[in-house]
Design a binder for these strands. Structure first.
Lengths: 301, 301
DNA sequence: GGGCGAGAAGATAACGTTGTCAAGAAGCCA
DNA sequence: TGGCTTCTTGACAACGTTATCTTCTCGCCC
């Protein structure tokens, strides 16, 4: 900036005024400054600028996802990015892999950089540690799962209702032995989906059979193993409810390798790429991550 | 920081020393300062810190992807994130949707924030605008496609060789009328894959039939339409080479809706989720985005 | 006991920028 | 011509931090 001012033969403040489009600079000087900026390829340091500005925003937000490479997460990410871009805001993204410690670390890093807001798909259940942050003016929005012990906005799907609908779909087709495959029950959505499953069965007057409920499954391989175990039961299930996208994939793989994909019904929660062209086609209760991300971003801003 | 110093009854520099783990602070004062930090929930402002530090790094990198929600891009992203996390570096990610202007805008924003390095899946072909940036010390790595008119590292797949292999696979199965579906030829990888296609055909002594070459396809819908048009030809192809993941998906959909998925062969470039469980299974020439991202990050750092 | 060195602590300036304010020029009206 | 307003411009301090340098306190040795 000093170099620009020297080359244009003006004071620092005049350069600052031109850079920020402030009024009160004569056209002559403005042209000189712009020329000098061009020539020196000058770019204002956004960090220094925000440091000085009163109550300055960094034009930056942080995003804590389960895994940036997960289709659900990355669709969320994209929607949020678009919303941020429209406001000239940049997005820090990070994966926490359902690890509460990593969630805190990431948010801590965001805080160090003084992000204006944070959108979280939370891994932990206690967010009291964010109280000061929130009071200090950092916007905070939770997605997919609610905040724990903190008064903050959150955007979520109707996991319970969707789950009931999925299981009732299977019941309507005459299934009575329906297995449940789920993620870690410490994840609130997984828990809600399990509740939907049991509620639908209760309504149908079917007692719960804990042998048919497999939880804590974290990837397609675990789901496939669980399905193999279910198939090996003396009285195997006639239908599967895979309550998460990766588990749906694992479930399908297991059924195919057993050659049972047409004998055992399957319904999933979360959409799955190519679900339409697998044979037989897979039914899913789809969420709309794009819409969730957009709503979350609008709330944040 | 001033509050912490006051509460601990020490000078600013002592707080700074404690925060940075510098030696030369008596255990008594160190304990006092740490207690004050705890009590006030103080966190150093990383931006201000890096501003003052000589040649300070912001511990931040920028990542320009085609689309954060695209599976290839997001797998890259994740690998880069992991590498960055190990170095306590945060990642700004952005999508440019193959728009060169957006690429420049994003990189400009990164520059304003003084990122230490930038990893780009480039949309443009001329990167001379990055010359000053590079000379100023910003690390620069290109992924998937080379830099244009700039001396910088890049990490890419063997598009030409992979493409030749894919087409030769079809030739070996006796196919002679093989259609090519490709993305915009302004994308260098799309161009290389087309070259691989024509080279394999030449080697087999088969003349190129421009009717069978469909390019500029940007999404599954466009690919499906192109396949429908191909099928409507007087002499339709007996095999398809879909040279990008989204086009593979569109191609499969079109074949299925025409009921020809067992009559017309298909091979794709890029992996596709669930490619293994579609019936008949899809062959693909898979890239390894995870490895590419890791290598790119290692190069950058 | 005095001089000296080592170590601890803080005062001050500086990083790149913008808010505040004062100075100067120019125009206007009586 | 003189006083007033308006506009342009730059000097200076400040944002939150760290580098440099000085001051001070010990303890040691001759």
């Amino acid at each position: 900036m000093l170099d620009v001012a020297a080359l244009a033969g003006v004071g620092l403040k005049t350069v600052s005024r031109v850079v920020n489009g402030e009024p009160g600079v004569s056209p002559t000087l403005e042209a000189k400054v712009k020329h000098a900026i061009e020539q020196l390829n000058y770019r204002r340091d956004a960090n220094a600028s925000m440091l000085r500005r009163l109550g300055g925003k960094t034009q930056t937000i942080g995003l804590v996802l389960e895994d940036v490479a997960n289709p659900f997460s990355s669709a969320l990410h994209r929607a949020i990015e678009d919303s941020a871009r429209a406001r000239n805001v940049l997005v820090f993204a990070g994966s926490c892999d359902e690890d509460p410690r990593r969630e805190r670390e990431l948010i801590g890093s965001f805080r160090d950089r003084r992000v204006d807001g944070i959108i979280v798909v939370p891994a932990s259940h206690d967010h009291t540690y964010l109280y000061d942050e929130q009071r200090a003016g950092t916007a905070l929005v939770f997605v997919d799962r609610p905040a724990g012990h903190l008064d903050a906005d959150s955007v979520a799907s109707n996991n319970l209702g969707g789950s009931v609908a999925a299981v009732e779909h299977l019941l309507a087709h005459g299934h009575r032995r329906i297995a449940f495959l789920g993620d870690l029950l410490s994840i609130s959505t997984a828990e809600e989906r399990l509740q939907g499953y049991t509620r639908a069965l209760e309504r149908a007057g079917i007692g719960r059979d804990s042998e048919l409920m497999r939880t804590g499954l974290r990837d397609p391989e675990a789901a496939a193993q669980a399905v193999n175990a279910l198939l090996a039961l003396p009285e195997p299930p006639t239908a599967l409810y895979t309550s998460q996208n990766l588990l749906t994939i694992g479930g399908i793989r297991a059924l195919r390798s057993a050659g049972l994909e047409r004998r055992i019904a399957l319904i999933g929660f979360d959409d799955v790429a190519l679900a339409d062209i697998v044979e037989p086609a897979i039914s899913v209760v789809a969420q709309d991550p794009q819409a969730m991300g957009q709503v979350a971003a609008e709330l944040l801003f």
